[in-house]
Amino acid sequence: MLTRFIIYGLLGWNMEVFWTGLMSGLNGNPRLVAHTYLWMFPIYGLAVLLEPLHEKIRCLHWYLRGMIWVVVIWTVEFITGGLLRLLVGTSPWIYRDGWQVYGLIRLDMAPLWFAAGLLFEQIHNRLAKSDLLAGNE
Results as ranks from 00 to 15, higher is better:
L104W: 10
G98Y: 14
A115P: 00
L112T: 14
C59I: 11
L112D: 01
G82T: 05
I57T: 07
V70N: 05
E55P: 00
E55G: 10
L118P: 05
R85D: 08
I105Y: 03
L87Y: 06
P52S: 06
H61V: 04
I94K: 10
Y95S: 06
P111T: 08
I68R: 06
A115R: 13
A115Q: 15
L53E: 01
R85S: 13
Q100F: 01
L53D: 02
L104I: 07
A116F: 15
Y102R: 15
A116K: 12
L53M: 10
R85G: 01
A115G: 12
V71Q: 12
G103P: 05
M67P: 00
I105C: 04
I79L: 14
R58P: 00
T80E: 07
V70Q: 10
L83P: 03
L87F: 09
V88Q: 13
E51H: 13
I105M: 06
Y102C: 14
W93I: 08
T80H: 07
L118T: 05
L83R: 11
L112A: 15
W74H: 11
L107C: 09
L53A: 03
L119W: 15
M109T: 07
L84S: 06
V72E: 05
G66Q: 12
W62G: 03
D108C: 09
I79S: 03
S91E: 06
W93P: 05
L119K: 09
S91T: 13
L84R: 10
L119C: 14
G66K: 11
V76E: 04
G89P: 01
W99P: 00
D97R: 12
T75S: 15
T75G: 14
D97K: 12
L60Q: 01
I73T: 12
L84V: 00
V101S: 03
G81P: 08
A115M: 14
I79H: 02
Y95L: 08
V88Y: 09
R96I: 04
G82F: 07
